[in-house]
Design a protein around this nucleic acid. Structure first.
Lengths: 219, 219
DNA sequence: GCCTGATCGTCAGCGGGCTGTAAGCGGGGG
DNA sequence: CCCCCGCTTACAGCCCGCTGACGATCAGGC
């Protein structure tokens, strides 16, 4: 799963991130809420781990804002043992689960898995853009009923493009879909993957906006 | 309905069992988890009543293990009034409902009936994926009518793959089917079992999605 | 208890598809 | 007409997955 971890403590953050990655998750880690905000807008995470006890203390605000703008990404909040009221408030604000520090890393994985499974049963959020159909949980893509055989990165790029059909997606956003955040990269990888995708799906589906980015079948 | 009751208290267990039987259910009653495990493997129950407050205290583990190996038998957990966290954890671990002690026997019947109705559709869920047929309650697998002789782990992996045909199953999910959560493991056991399975069933049934996981049949 | 066969987890070598980079080409805008 | 940007193709490295083999452990029969 693709996870976002918001945690200001260096040691703990590193440990959690390593553990998640070691268990096959793609985990992005931000130490501050404004970074988390940007990440959340750029990437469609499967779940989010949110430490409420951040220096600026606005974790709860962040969660409420997220829900207000209609984002339903599952959120697991993390609090210290004594902050019962914050936990209750968090659940009311739209959190899906909570963890009490200190917690076992296995426990963390179990919660993440549970949240993931809970949403796995939902009616498939099938993305349809013109002749293109994406089924994110099944990692299936079809064009005019023809099944596409996509590699991991190709899928990542196509999914990112399809998340907001018709919306312009900048090259940088696509690079974030290809690589992590930390990895600054300078190459034409995005163009290469767009090219590979165009070869596999019908012409005219991915539209180039010169100097700005790409957009999917604006019709 | 065919029910399994796991309850260590003699008086309470007897009362519940009598009440269930009196209302037309077939109820098996075990006092210990290993008996429950054996019964669960031998009989396809319609639902299960699980007391979490057992002497050996591993009721939660039992539930998690059940779900891990893909068993979807509806589970109603039973806890004392003050064990809120256990209830939350139980629901996360895959329970379908819970009852708080002390409870009314009519209430119990209502819950059992509700859970039963929710799953009323398929009494014997035979999984069919292309040439492959799985019969989970009987632990039988056939390909083109040919009976497969699978080991325990091989079955676990194949069943996990077949639970949602066409859905992509990550390596981590398969590791969970093979081992437990807590067990940190670093090996290619999943690949080995996939290889062993492929050797036993027809080619092209298990499909590899590089970097993401495996999927059964379609495509 | 001892033997035998099956099963399990690990390892290492191999092969191949995926990936990122670079270079050449084309076209649109200034 | 020229420059810049994006498209495409080619390629080499590498990571990932596949498979055969081996020792350990377990279950069952004698």
């Amino acid at each position: 799963m693709r996870l976002l971890l918001v945690e200001d403590d260096e040691m703990l953050g590193q440990a959690i991130r390593d553990h998640l990655v070691a268990h096959g998750h793609a985990a992005d880690w931000t130490r501050r809420l404004d970074d988390a905000d940007a990440a959340q807008l750029a990437v469609a995470y499967d779940a989010m781990l949110l430490d409420l006890n951040l220096p600026d203390g606005r974790g709860m605000e962040f969660l409420k804002r997220l829900r207000r703008r209609g984002d339903t990404t599952p959120v697991i909040i993390v609090t210290a043992m004594d902050q019962l009221t914050m936990r209750i408030e968090g659940l009311n604000a739209g959190a899906d689960d909570y963890l009490v520090k200190p917690f076992d890393l296995g426990e963390l994985l179990a919660r993440v898995g549970a949240v993931g499974r809970r949403y796995a049963g939902n009616p498939n959020p099938l993305i349809v853009v013109g002749p293109l159909e994406l089924d994110p949980p099944h990692k299936l893509a079809t064009v005019n009923g023809r099944k596409l055989d996509l590699s991991a990165r190709e899928w990542a790029v196509l999914e990112r493009l399809a998340q907001h059909p018709g919306t312009l997606v900048s090259r940088m956003q696509l690079e974030e879909a290809l690589f992590g955040f930390g990895d600054e990269i300078e190459s034409n990888a995005v163009e290469v993957y767009v090219s590979r995708l165009r070869k596999k799906l019908d012409a005219g589906v991915i539209h180039t906006v010169r100097g700005l980015g790409y957009r999917l079948a604006p019709q």
